[in-house]
């Protein structure tokens, strides 16, 4: 398969977006190092991994397909309940539970994607919000199935791969969630750098031109939205399995808003933004909530206003400049 010189160069240029950068190795090395170095923090790290997967899913929708949504919790919540029901009534095997969660998220995502094809960003915001509200109310009313406001409990989640039983310190939970996150991240990375992924990126940049080169825009959006919804469903399933409980707030509006915040914090369209944002968000929530339990949203609101008005890049630069003024800095 040897190509002539210019074509070999071109193949290299075309593959460049997909090249793995050193910072990526560092990111995952740190994540897996936390398994061994921070055993006493595994509970919160697990919750970061779950939120990171959810935010990764939202990045596929917002950052790559360019669909704004305020109802991404719909798929997360459906996935959580699906994993719960699977565990309680069918099998305790976690991976089969995740498959059920992904399937449920994907089915709801596929069905609702058609509602988002037409219309402006505002329409999409409202429709996605509406779908999530409807599902939240259904979960509330169907208390015989979901437990309603009391929550869904009585799940006996079996050991992962039949060997690793969940413990109360979250050791197995974090390892499990991190591995799932990693595998799904690798898959997402392959997909966004594929011809399919590039066509989705392109149609986000310019739908008019994308159509004019023969990209079936609607079909691509449906496919990407469904793919992301599967991820969100699996994230919900992870939460259900690792906490052995599902409460109504898996479908809550706040969850959709939070995932948007995470992505705004970390940046869209490069896959890591959601994960970094999720880590910062969960850690900040944890720290600030223990300092001033009532005022958590005050601080996150302030951070949001500063971040969006000043801009992330400039903010990081200013922060860097400020850090250099500190005593002890070079």
């Amino acid at each position: 398969m040897s190509l002539p010189e210019p074509a070999a160069d071109a193949a290299r240029l075309l593959g460049r977006r997909a090249r793995i950068r050193p910072a990526e190795w560092l990111f995952w090395a740190l994540a897996f190092a936390a398994l061994f170095l921070l055993p006493e923090r595994h509970l919160i790290l697990n919750s970061i991994a779950v939120q990171a997967l959810f935010a990764l899913s939202y990045d596929l929708v917002l950052g790559f397909a360019g669909i704004v949504s305020l109802g991404h919790a719909a798929f997360f919540g459906v996935g959580a309940y699906a994993a719960g029901l699977m565990t309680k009534f069918v099998t305790g095997d976690p991976l089969l539970g995740l498959a059920a969660a992904g399937l449920a998220g994907g089915v709801v995502g596929f069905a609702s994607s058609f509602l988002l094809l037409r219309g402006s960003d505002l329409t999409r915001l409202m429709v996605s919000l509406g779908v999530a509200l409807i599902l939240a109310e259904i979960a509330n009313k169907a208390a015989w199935l979901t437990g309603g406001t009391d929550g869904f409990s009585g799940m006996a989640v079996g050991p992962v791969l039949g060997r690793y039983a969940f413990d109360i310190f979250g050791h197995v939970a974090f390892a499990y969630s991190l591995c799932v996150l990693f595998v799904l991240f690798v898959l997402a990375r392959i997909v966004v750098h594929s011809p399919f992924g590039l066509s989705v990126t392109a149609l986000h940049h310019n739908p008019l031109r994308a159509r004019a080169v023969g990209v079936p825009v609607n079909r691509r959006l449906v496919a990407m939205y469904t793919f992301a919804a599967i991820y969100a469903g699996i994230a919900g399933g992870l939460l259900a399995q690792t906490t052995q409980f599902v409460s109504l707030d898996v479908l809550d509006f706040n969850r959709s808003a939070d995932v948007l915040l995470m992505l705004v914090i970390g940046g869209t369209g490069y896959l890591y933004g959601g994960m970094i944002g999720a880590a910062l968000f969960v850690l900040a929530q944890d720290q600030l909530a223990s300092l001033t339990p009532q005022y958590w949203h005050f601080w996150i609101g302030l951070a949001l206003v500063v971040l969006t008005l000043v801009g992330r890049e400039r903010f990081a630069k200013r922060l860097g400049a400020f850090a250099r003024l500190l005593p002890g800095a070079r």
């Binding site: 398969m1 071109a10 193949a11 594929s194 011809p195 399919f196």
Partner: peptide
Amino acid sequence: GADWWRRFGARP
């Protein structure tokens, strides 16, 4: 467009 598993530019 249906090819989601190969790197863009992998086809000679």
